[in-house]
Design a protein around this nucleic acid. Structure first.
Length: 423
RNA sequence: GUGGCUGUAGCUCAGUUGGUUAGAGCGUCGGGUUGUGGUCCCGAAGGCCGGGGGUUCGAGUCCCCUCAGUCACCCCA
């Protein structure tokens, strides 16, 4: 039996986001939503739960599916899982509803993975993402990458690098996997216990960070050399498109990404400003077979996910997108009691002002102190002397200047004054 | 899942070779007289010293286990 103090806290690896920090989240999501809208993407909201099989399709060889999924059987006996990644639900929704293509959607949603938490890696993390189901046109790859690229720029991030690679089509990859597997076998002694993994999923070894493998990895055969003409042409078109848009990128021959469904173009955005090992702030690629794998019409797809927590860590490192200062137009100080303060605050808020007040009948001095801390531009005090004349005291918190204003005109007077002082 | 580091008030941290009622700063609340903030002064609340077990006359200090945080591997956003 766990003690209360162990249980009444957020689960391991999961974060609470409190004000004022949460204001940055609003900012991040708003900017992404705005950009996605301009690119022609609509918001897609899917359940946080899917049938287990939906995610099983994204790759039975991936750790995310094999050992990191939160899954359970519900009361109706259904085998369900909490979403571990964003693409599968989108494709599932596409297959279910059969919207006309190209289908361009974006999302913001929490993902769940039962991993060991560390910096930039949480058991619940939020992703912003965009996906396009439609033709395998490389222009779609370019536009989608441009959407993500511009988003980082909107936030003010400068040290984000775009890495791209091609996984090729089935034929390309089949040829490559043969060569690569042979290469791993030559180095079986170095691979040791991981040889089984190298056999099961040869590509996954390529981007390992193990230092003792780096020498071997650098000399490994590269996928780029085994692309079919069709795959090569597609990739060249993507490159040409990025160049046309002035988007810098590096080709990363060993970039393979973590999910089985990727084909053709894959890409990743990494932050050079992150001192953490988890420096990928976004990534995605093409998945030209996934829709068909889920029983839908064969429809190529392209998309990406962006980790919000990691983006915010990157923003901290680069010192951009600071937590906003608390904003308050008016603080109501109540020296009379009754319902007047409630009425005045309500009236000012209905007039469009941001209003705070004190509660609990605190001493006037304490209320002014609270007004100061609130960051309010103006303090409005309800007090007996002024009220006898049908007025209230309006104080400019910055200058300390205070004047009496007719009760009926308070909202208008303050609104007018604030206009000349954009905060 | 594996390994390193850490765990004392809401926050940041002190706590001397184990020795009496565990401290500070910040924050919060209250006071410095009649209705006015930011500075200053005074005061208060707030800690099963993460939890459990052990060693000891005695443990916040030592040992073991556990939980949590953190960093790294694996993997991924």
């Amino acid at each position: 039996m766990a003690a209360d103090r162990d249980v009444f806290r957020a689960p391991k690896g999961m974060l609470d986001v409190l004000p004022p920090e949460s204001a940055r989240w609003i900012d991040v999501v708003t900017r992404f939503a705005e950009r996605a809208r301009r690119f022609g993407f609509g918001l897609l909201m899917t359940p946080i739960l899917e049938h287990y099989e939906v995610f099983q399709r994204v790759g039975e060889n991936t750790d995310v599916v094999r050992k990191e999924m939160y899954e359970f059987v519900d009361r109706g006996g259904r085998h369900l899982a909490l979403r571990p990644e964003g693409t599968a639900p989108v494709v599932r929704a596409f297959v279910q509803h059969r919207p006309p293509v190209p289908w361009k959607v974006w999302y913001v949603a929490p993902n769940f993975r039962a991993e060991q938490p560390q910096k930039g890696r949480y058991r619940q993390h939020w992703q912003l993402g965009a996906e396009v189901l439609g033709p395998p046109d490389p222009d779609i790859d370019v536009e989608t990458i441009a959407l993500a690229h511009g988003f980082y720029r909107d936030l003010g991030l400068k040290q984000v690098t775009l890495l791209i690679n091609s996984m090729g089509d089935d034929e390309s990859r089949a040829r490559y996997v043969d060569v690569l597997t042979a290469y791993w076998r030559e180095h079986a002694s170095l691979l040791g216990d991981e040889m089984a993994r190298a056999e099961a999923n040869p590509l996954r070894i390529l981007d390992s960070k193990r230092e003792d493998w780096q020498e071997m990895l650098e000399h490994a055969p590269q996928l780029g050399e085994y692309l079919t003409d069709e795959s090569r042409t597609h990739f060249e078109h993507v490159e040409a498109g990025l160049q046309a848009l002035g988007i810098d990128y590096d080709i990363a021959p060993r970039l393979v990404r973590g999910f089985d469904y990727y084909t053709s173009t894959v890409f990743e955005f990494t932050s050079n400003a992150l001192d953490a090992a988890q420096n990928a702030v976004g990534g995605g690629g093409r998945y030209d077979r996934l829709a068909a794998d889920m029983g839908g019409p064969p429809t190529p797809g392209m998309g990406f996910g962006i980790g919000i927590e990691r983006v915010l860590i990157a923003c901290d490192s680069e010192d951009v997108l600071p937590v906003p200062e608390p904003h308050c137009d008016v603080f109501v100080v109540d020296a009379v009691g009754g319902t007047e303060a409630t009425r005045l605050a309500y009236e000012l808020r209905e007039a469009g002002l941001t209003v705070e007040r004190a509660y609990g009948g605190r001493a006037v001095k304490k209320q002014w102190s609270a007004a100061d801390r609130s960051g309010a531009q103006y303090g409005v005090m309800l007090a007996p002397k002024e009220m006898e004349q049908g007025k209230v005291a309006v104080k400019d918190m910055r200058t300390g200047e205070q004047v009496d204003v007719p009760r009926d005109e308070v909202a208008a007077v303050i609104a007018t004054r604030l206009e000349g002082r954009p905060s």
